[in-house]
Simulated scan of single mutants.
Amino acid sequence: MSTSSTPVAECVANHWTINSLGQSPCEVAGLLAQVCTGVRLILPQLPERNEYYGPNSTNQNSCRCSSVLYSLISACAHCQERNYVEWSKYKENCTAAMTPHSGSFPFPLPPGVAVPSWAYQDVEKGDTFDISAAIISG
């Protein structure tokens, strides 16, 4: 979660990750996380160090552990020109019951949110978010 002193994650202008509604993957990820928690997740800007977004042992749930949220969060890191982690590292704090099948989101999408098709890619196969495949699928 971001505090008032922490800059909010923003993508560089005209980035391919912006959806049809003009929402960044950082914003869409926060809106999807709200489905499970009731509180919108606001992703802070990633520092230049090797930090990443991901569930920890106290905040994991079915939304935070979904591959769709992982893909959106990875795209959020990428559009900030930062690194993101492999799927296996991202989900290491998730129980098997909390990690839905790759390429799916376990809840109905909230109104006013457009999830790009690239967010549903299979991340199990390569153990990562595939930027090249995402760009092609648009």
Score class of each variant (00 low, 15 high):
73 I>K: 08
124 E>Q: 13
39 V>G: 04
116 P>I: 01
136 I>A: 15
35 V>K: 15
62 S>G: 08
99 T>C: 09
48 E>A: 04
85 V>H: 07
130 D>E: 14
81 E>F: 07
121 Q>S: 04
29 A>L: 06
44 P>M: 05
49 R>T: 14
11 C>M: 06
103 G>M: 09
51 E>F: 11
137 S>F: 04
59 N>A: 00
17 T>D: 05
58 T>N: 07
78 H>T: 07
11 C>H: 10
75 A>S: 05
95 T>N: 13
122 D>K: 03
129 F>G: 10
85 V>N: 07
47 P>L: 12
66 S>G: 10
84 Y>P: 00
94 C>V: 00
97 A>G: 12
56 N>P: 02
107 F>T: 09
116 P>K: 05
99 T>A: 13
111 P>I: 10
61 N>Q: 04
47 P>E: 07
69 L>S: 01
65 C>S: 00
71 S>E: 02
103 G>I: 09
5 S>Q: 14
124 E>A: 10
35 V>W: 10
44 P>N: 13
91 K>Y: 05
53 Y>W: 04
119 A>G: 07
100 P>S: 13
138 G>P: 00
94 C>A: 08
76 C>W: 03
134 A>E: 11
87 W>N: 10
59 N>G: 02
97 A>R: 10
116 P>N: 08
19 N>L: 11
46 L>Y: 13
73 I>W: 03
16 W>M: 08
9 A>T: 02
89 K>S: 12
1 M>N: 08
13 A>P: 15
14 N>T: 06
14 N>W: 04
32 L>H: 11
84 Y>E: 01
119 A>W: 02
127 D>R: 03
128 T>M: 12
9 A>H: 05
10 E>Q: 14
129 F>M: 08
61 N>G: 08
112 G>P: 02
12 V>P: 02
6 T>G: 11
98 M>Q: 15
91 K>L: 09
102 S>P: 08
21 L>P: 06
46 L>M: 07
120 Y>C: 01
91 K>I: 15
99 T>V: 14
15 H>S: 15
12 V>A: 09
120 Y>V: 00
105 F>K: 12
121 Q>N: 07
44 P>E: 03
10 E>M: 09
